[in-house]
Lab assay of single mutants.
Amino acid sequence: NITNLCPFDEVFNATRFASVYAWNRKRISNCVADYSVLYNLAPFFTFKCYGVSPTKLNDLCFTNVYADSFVIRGDEVRQIAPGQTGNIADYNYKLPDDFTGCVIAWNSNKLDSKVSGNYNYLYRLFRKSNLKPFERDISTEIYQAGNKPCNGVAGFNCYFPLRSYSFRPTYGVGHQPYRVVVLSFELLHAPATVCGPKKST
């Protein structure tokens, strides 16, 4: 009989979030998941669920729940959905087409922007091929755009693959930082360890 609440607040209220290319994953298990708490945590810009209804979450049980978190800019949030393409979905964080879970995003301009520009958040701009779903690539190998090998040196047709967002508070919403948490629900042929409040007794 599990009584402890799932530590969603640790994920959502973390002081620092990860850069999207090096997104963070927390496995959540053996706890009571009260998803209604999430609705009250922040004024969400996005709370979209796929393959599951957000209002039914509190009635369900899962084997595992994974919470992935990272920062992107406002106009990239739409890429965090099944079947999307674009720089983020292709080279940084890719959801599977049959994704079961929820994408939660909110504006973090007050936390993640600086007047002089916050350069701490990076994204991958160049990659030889698209990522597979939930693949994480943290390599910093020089990207070869031409025929000549780069031998690890940046220059003509040889690019450092990561680029930094420079978040400034005066930017338009599309270029402001957004914190994203992706909850993916895993149903294996194994005992369910993460249940809503109704199912945990």
Rank of each mutant, 00 (worst) to 15 (best):
F99L: 05
V20Q: 00
E141Y: 08
L162R: 04
Y121C: 05
Y121M: 10
T63Q: 11
L187V: 14
T46H: 15
I104M: 12
R179L: 00
D34W: 06
P149E: 12
S69F: 06
G196Y: 10
Y123M: 15
N157K: 02
V115T: 12
Y119A: 08
P96E: 03
A190F: 10
D34N: 12
K94I: 02
S19I: 02
Q176G: 01
K128M: 09
G83V: 06
V181D: 00
C6Q: 06
G101S: 01
E186V: 08
K26Y: 09
S184H: 13
L60F: 10
G86S: 04
C150E: 00
R27L: 11
T46P: 07
F12P: 04
V11W: 08
K94W: 00
V20Y: 02
P96G: 08
Y143I: 03
N118M: 05
K56P: 08
P7D: 15
Y121L: 13
A22W: 07
L187W: 11
H175M: 01
S166R: 05
S166Q: 06
S113T: 04
N4E: 13
W23T: 02
P7Q: 13
A42M: 13
P197M: 15
G172C: 02
S108W: 02
I88E: 00
T63E: 13
N24S: 15
S113L: 01
K132F: 09
F167C: 00
L57Q: 08
W106D: 01
T140W: 08
A190G: 15
E76H: 09
L60Y: 14
G172I: 00
R124F: 00
S108H: 01
A22E: 12
D68L: 04
C31D: 06
S29P: 10
G86M: 02
T46R: 13
I2R: 14
A18Y: 08
S19K: 03
N147Y: 07
T46N: 12
S184C: 12
P169F: 05
C150P: 00
W23D: 00
N40V: 08
R163W: 15
P149W: 07
N147G: 07
V37L: 14
R124E: 00
V115D: 07
T140E: 14
V181G: 02
T170K: 06
V173K: 15
L38V: 12
A33M: 14
N87K: 15
S19N: 06
N4T: 14
L38A: 07
P177I: 01
V71C: 05
F99R: 02
T201N: 15
Y121T: 04
N87E: 07
A18E: 10
K128N: 11
D90H: 07
A154T: 15
S19L: 02
